[in-house]
Design a protein around this nucleic acid. Structure first.
Lengths: 204, 204
DNA sequence: TCCTTTTACTGAACACTGTTCATTATATTT
DNA sequence: AAATATAATGAACAGTGTTCAGTAAAAGGA
């Protein structure tokens, strides 16, 4: 009979509903405001029911992390399509920072939080999205090195140098530490640092 | 009578004891393991008593932040004493990263946590330690720019570029995201990025 | 249709968290 | 010794993640 298939579909539907609600609460109340009990309340099930669909809160945050990467990819799409690797690096940096600044809670879950990493460790899973992102950055660096004949820098070092810079900038901005040391406009100063960074790398 | 003086001294002593215990728990159980109730339990007072000496947990974390900066200064002392500004920047970077990697909980409270910033906002206080740190970095950049005739870079931009890089590196390392994208030795790769960063800036 | 088995769900509890406040205990002063 | 001022707390409020015995509902078989 097809009833077992229907049941599986219903089970998947409730799982989706839980995640959809989790996302809703995340957007409304932030990561700190997201709790199992609030999700349960919203979908009108008991908190215990959540644990029939997810092992623990870490797993839910891991799923939210994956959703975050999908959102981030929308921000990156235009930059990724740029032909010139040097210009592409600049566009990637700008898009990355825009995503981070405009989506604090998503960014925290993806790049700062312990819970999704904890879940991956428990499941012996890889950080596929993070690795894919970094690999693409590294490939663009490689292209740029070849095209602009940058003999003194390694592509892996260059990629990490760029990533850590924008990661640091976003975190300083999101924790309100950037405005304290630099009163000027946040976007302007970040733009300047990113430009300076790339200018440093590409000048010979 | 001097009894009021003695009472004030006793009050200050208990305040010190609370902070000392908070530090002890932070070192043993991390920031997440630090709770008002654990402090109260350790010093054998009721949790409510803590609130006679501190407005809230934010204030305690703010005090811990200040303690963290004192510890950091010990890490930085040698670097700060370096004569040559370019070499000093390198030593500062290395010392900063060492401090961060070796003191996750202190680093989080100082450079990532919201609570100490929240406390400062409530008290309309400045982030003195952070500003002092950044000002010193900026001055060193200014010196380096003058000595090595770097005409294309602004000292403020350069300082922020360096800070965000090491901040990003430390955070990626502390959240176990660095080892995932780069399997090589953590310290080695960080050293390489820092060197590359400074090499980029100082080459003409 | 009735009965058994399987699946789905939940109430209540456990062990925590920060914070407040009326009440009690202690110490000081009159 | 009594009155006052200070210090400390018990208990409660409103939360948190998580577990598990027990119940309700649906599915399968006779």
């Amino acid at each position: 009979m097809g009833s077992s298939e229907r049941k599986e579909r219903e089970k998947a539907e409730l799982k989706e509903q839980i995640l959809h609600t989790a996302k809703k609460i995340l957007l409304k109340s932030g990561k700190n405001g997201l709790s199992i009990r609030k999700i349960a309340n919203e979908i009108e099930y008991s908190p215990a029911t959540i644990y029939l669909y997810f092992k623990d809160k870490d797993e839910i945050l891991h799923e939210l992390m994956e959703m975050g990467f999908m959102l981030k990819n929308k921000y990156m799409a235009h930059a990724y399509a740029e032909k010139d690797p040097a210009q592409r690096l600049y566009e990637i940096g700008k898009a990355y920072v825009s995503f981070g600044i405009q989506n604090k809670d998503w960014y925290d879950i993806m790049f700062n939080s312990d819970e999704p990493m904890q879940h991956m460790a428990k499941c012996r899973e890889d950080w596929d999205q993070g690795m894919a992102m970094f690999n693409f950055l590294t490939m663009t660096c490689k292209e740029a090195i070849q095209k602009y004949d940058l003999t003194t820098i390694d592509e892996n070092v260059m990629a990490l140098q760029l990533w850590s810079s924008v990661h640091g900038l976003v975190n300083l901005a999101l924790t309100n530490r950037l405005d304290i040391v630099e009163h000027a406009d946040k976007h302007e100063i970040i733009e300047k640092v990113l430009s300076s960074m790339l200018h440093c790398i590409f000048k010979k």
